[in-house]
Every structure is written in C-alpha cells, then in structure tokens.
Amino acid sequence: MLDYTCFEGILFPANLVPKETLQNVCNKFVVKEDDLIILTYPKSGTNWLIEIVCLIQTKGDPKWIQSVPIWDRSPWIETGKGYDQLIKMEGPRLMTSHLPMHLFSKSLFSSKAKVIYLIRNPRDALVSRYFFIRKLNIVKKPDSLGTYIEWFLKGNVAYGSWFEHIRGWLSMRECDNFLVLYYEDMKKDTMGTIKKICDFLGKKLEPNELNSVLKYSSFQFMKENNMSNYSLMEKELILTGFTLMRKGTIEDWKNHFTVAQAEAFDKVFQKKMAGFPPGMFPWE
C-alpha cells in the first residue's frame, strides 16, 4: 500500500499514479487547443483553485460543484482513473496535474491550451503536506517534521523537488496562455484573483456572479461540501482524523519550524532559486 513508483528519478504514490499512465501522459496524451490545465506542486491550494475555476465556468451557480466530485470535474491526468476519463472526454476539458514540466505531454508546448500555475510558499506547502500524509494510507510517513524537511529539501518526496517544479514551469511565465498565481495573493485578495482568472479565460461575470464564486469557493463552504472535501475518498486510503482542509492559512510554517530548520531551509532556497528577480515571490 505504501509503495512509491519511481519514474525518471521522481517518486510517485504507486497506488494512485501507475508507471504506465506516466508513460502515456509523457508520450501519447494529446493536449487540445481548448483544454484548461490547472498545475500545482502538492498542497499549494490546488482544490481551492479547481473550485474557483468550476464556479467561474458556471457563473457562480453552485449546482455543479455540489453534485459532482471534484476529481470528476477536473480529472488528474497522471492517475489511472483520471487519464482514462480525459482521453474519452469531449472538449473543452478541465484537468489537473502535479507533474513537473519535463514529464508533461510535449503536445502542450506547441498548443494554445490555457494553463494556470499556482505557487505557494514552499515552507507552508511542506507543513500542510506533512500533516496531510500522516492521515493517509498512501505513502511512507516521516517520523517527525524534521525528517520531512530533510526529505523535502532533497526532493525525496512524491512529485520530486519543489524547487525543480517551480523553476521548470516558471520558464513558461512569459507565454500568453500561461497564468501564474500565488496562494498568498489568493488569500489576501480572493476577489482580485477571481477577476484575474476571469480575464485570462475570457469570461465576463456580473458582480452578483463574482460574489457567488467568492462565496461558494470559501474555505468554510468547501470544508462542508462533500463533493470537494475528499470525504468520499476510498476508505482504505485514509486514516482516522483525515481532513483535506486543515487550516488554509499562510505562514503556518512559523508555528512548526525551529530557528535552525528555518535557516537551513532559507539557505537551500537561496541557492536553488538563484536567478529569479528579487521580490518575485510574495512571501519574500
């Protein structure tokens, strides 16, 4: 149950992400011009972004998000089930992925498909993921946060290195069909982010429709929506006390890192992210 698949040197949860599917995504999957792809590194606000995009598509009407599980509204391309759904799906397709750039279908890079890439402070993504995997029966659990920080900094976690993921996908940031969002900005100005996504997708929403998107994508609504909070997940994959939505805050890492851990993390961050302009990331 707790095995990893190793593909191209990167770890994936074996029971969710089969090697064969990864090979298919890499070599066979054809991205279509009207596809919309949500890309993130794990625990960066993925499901929140999916919820917002789904609500924008229905102009704030919550019927779709309240009747169809989130993984069926925006299937995960690298999972066996999601891949099978997507290749049969009529367009326009909405899909989600945590894959690093070099493992994604090469057809993306010559298409006009739209991509939204959401980035979160890696310290917060790390802490969120640490608590998340402790309640899952999917991958090996670290014995402490300190151990997990070491794994994370070395990229020995599912989906590989945060630093490589960000560096890879951000190389597309100047493309017209590529929108970069930051979790921190979403938290501070959710309506501003919703409007930015609408502009990117060419969607014109009335003020009442925008308010509805804001309302139904809120932390509280999502936490209570069984179609979005992963409470419908197969019971053998989750442990007692599992919750997808733990806090949804920013800078929670400060409650968990020691001074030494924060300094060690900063050192690696500076080295790995050298070359990006100062102030590129909102948490700096």
Rank of each mutant, 00 (worst) to 15 (best):
Y230I: 08
Q220R: 14
Y148K: 04
N137F: 05
S67V: 02
P42R: 06
V213S: 03
K267A: 12
I250C: 09
E251L: 13
N255F: 08
V25Y: 12
F152G: 01
Y41I: 06
I10F: 05
I119M: 09
K254D: 02
D266K: 09
W71A: 02
K28T: 14
F242G: 00
F221I: 06
D35G: 06
L205P: 00
E209C: 05
G60R: 13
W76Y: 15
L99F: 12
T46R: 09
L99P: 04
M186Y: 14
G192R: 11
L103V: 09
G45I: 11
G82K: 07
Y230H: 10
W151G: 00
N229S: 11
D35V: 10
K196P: 00
K28P: 00
G60A: 14
T240D: 14
R129S: 00
K59Q: 13
K203W: 09
Y117L: 04
Q23A: 12
Y41M: 04
N137Q: 09
I238A: 01
M227L: 07
G80R: 04
K272Q: 15
T147A: 15
L22H: 05
Y183R: 05
E209G: 03
S107P: 04
F104R: 01
Y183N: 03
I133D: 03
I250Y: 01
E8V: 02
A260K: 13
D252F: 10
E164I: 05
L39K: 05
V213W: 09
S144A: 11
A260Q: 14
V25H: 09
A14F: 03
N47Y: 06
D124R: 01
L205S: 04
V213L: 08
D252Q: 10
N121R: 04
L181W: 03
T79P: 00
G279D: 10
M95L: 15
R129Q: 00
K19T: 05
M233R: 07
G160L: 04
